[in-house]
């Protein structure tokens, strides 16, 4: 089978039962996407397929030979990070890091959905939803984080998306914390 992942062409001889997630992790050395549940319940495996966020454990590789697949490795890398990757580091939008690639891929897809005007369960105006903290939390609730970095994940996404109302920047948060812990 042939695939296009992160702009690169791959050939792989895989079982037709192989999910996109297992294709990436077990056959192509792309272990950024994580397996948390293998049932589409946790979001750790989120990748972008033709720009849309997808639980890659729930879709078979054989179905996506003509699609553009983007994993966390394709968004940015050490030394050349995507703005969201940078913001997750600055805001401590993770702890163990296992759900993080999925959170970041999901956030990229989510911001595109908002840009297209797609409403969510909490949108007051279904025709023109505004991205506030409630919208970010609602739309990111398919990505579990047991370490519970949720407030920091919201901060990171809000800052990159320049959502209103503005929250504290990472620098402002750091400054407030320094005041508390240093005599």
């Amino acid at each position: 089978m042939h695939f296009t992942i992160n702009g690169r062409a791959y050939e792989a001889d895989v079982d037709i039962r192989t999910s996109i997630l297992d294709l990436c992790r077990e056959h192509l050395g792309l272990t950024g996407a994580k397996k948390g549940c293998d049932h589409g319940q946790c979001g750790a495996c989120t990748v972008l397929i033709d720009g849309r966020r997808v639980n890659s454990c729930l879709t078979l590789a054989v179905m996506h030979q003509d699609d553009e697949i983007t994993t966390i490795e394709g968004l940015g890398q050490i030394g050349d990070p995507h703005p969201l990757q940078e913001a997750f580091v600055r805001h401590d939008g993770y702890q163990c890091g296992y759900c993080t690639p999925g959170q970041i891929c999901s956030a990229v897809g989510m911001l595109d959905e908002v840009a297209k005007g797609w409403p969510s369960h909490v949108s007051e105006d279904l025709a023109a939803p505004l991205l506030d903290d409630g919208e970010i939390s609602e739309r990111m609730s398919g990505n579990l984080c047991r370490c519970a970095a949720y407030p920091n994940i919201v901060d990171a996404i809000r800052e990159v998306a320049q959502a209103e109302p503005e929250g504290r920047t990472a620098d402002e948060k750091d400054a407030a914390m320094i005041g508390e812990v240093l005599a």
Binding site: L30, T31, G32, A33, T71, I72, E73, G76, Q77, I78, G79, P81, Q85, E86, F88, V89, R90, D92, Y94, G97, T100, P101, I104, K173, D174, M177, I178, V181, L182
Partner: peptide
């Protein structure tokens, strides 16, 4: 001080 995690860049890039 609130240093960013030293393992952060690795974690966010997979």
């Amino acid at each position: 001080r609130p240093f960013d995690r030293v393992d952060g860049p690795k974690k966010v890039s997979g």
